[in-house]
């Protein structure tokens, strides 16, 4: 476990910002700065060098995807910093944009509602700080419903797709085995099958690459 995290938080709604600070501090993390826009976020990241950033997507001045742009900038300049994006949208286009940014530390995309599941949220945050990729289960569920006729994903078996979906949620092989009620060895076999079918380069983080391939369809 990463233990006590040094976090910079960006969220433009004061109500939510305070709520988040409360949850994070109660969990023993240190919120070194809580700001209301992407510009301040970038300034504090450069200045305070946190190990984790938690940011909203939609912030001033344009209320569009400032949080995603900031995340990309942070990954380009400080790849070691883990980033957790909080969003109001289920659409996978946002997740794809986030995961398309430069490689680096852990990355996460969670719906804001998830924060209400405090333990789950804090657990996801820890995993992202640990370098894992975490995608909100609801987004993954929506992706799972997608059926495709072409591309490498079409060659996956149903079981492999299930495993891939759980990988996208950021679960370890052990957790996946538990969720699917199979042995961890069976999960490893499925994961290997996924890597082979998606023709992933063994030199990269294949777990992240598989999720990326999954999200891009």
């Amino acid at each position: 476990m990463p233990g006590r995290l040094r976090i910079v938080l960006a969220e433009d709604a004061a109500l939510l910002r305070e709520g988040l600070v409360g949850i994070l501090e109660k969990a023993g993390h240190e919120v070194v700065a809580a700001v209301g826009d992407a510009e301040a976020l970038l300034a504090y990241v450069a200045h305070a060098r946190p190990d984790t950033v938690v940011t909203d997507i939609r912030m001033p001045p344009d209320h569009s995807v400032e949080g995603l742009r900031a995340a990309a900038a942070i990954r380009a300049d400080h790849p070691e910093i883990a980033i957790m994006v909080l969003s109001a949208y289920v659409a996978d286009a946002y997740v794809a944009e986030l995961l398309d940014s430069a490689p680096g530390g852990g990355i996460g995309y969670l719906l804001k509602d998830r924060v209400g599941h405090v333990r789950e949220f804090l657990d996801s945050l820890d995993r992202v700080a640990d370098g894992e990729t975490v995608v909100d289960p609801q987004v993954v569920r929506q992706l799972l419903g997608r059926r495709r006729d072409d591309g490498p994903l079409a060659s996956l078996t149903d079981r492999e797709r299930e495993v891939l979906a759980l990988m996208a949620e950021g679960r370890t092989n052990g957790a996946i085995a538990e969720a699917l009620v199979v042995s961890e060895a069976a999960v490893r076999k499925h994961v290997g099958g996924i890597f082979a079918k998606l023709r992933l380069d063994p030199g990269t983080d294949r777990r992240v690459s598989a999720v990326l391939a999954y999200l891009r369809g």
Binding site: A13, L15, G22, I23, V115, G116
Partner: peptide, 19 residues
């Protein structure tokens, strides 16, 4: 900016209360 934010804040508060 209105109803959605307040509902998110509500789920957060309830989540903390749960603990």
């Amino acid at each position: 900016d209105g109803a959605q934010q307040r509902l998110v804040a509500l789920t957060m508060t309830l989540g903390r209360a749960e603990l």
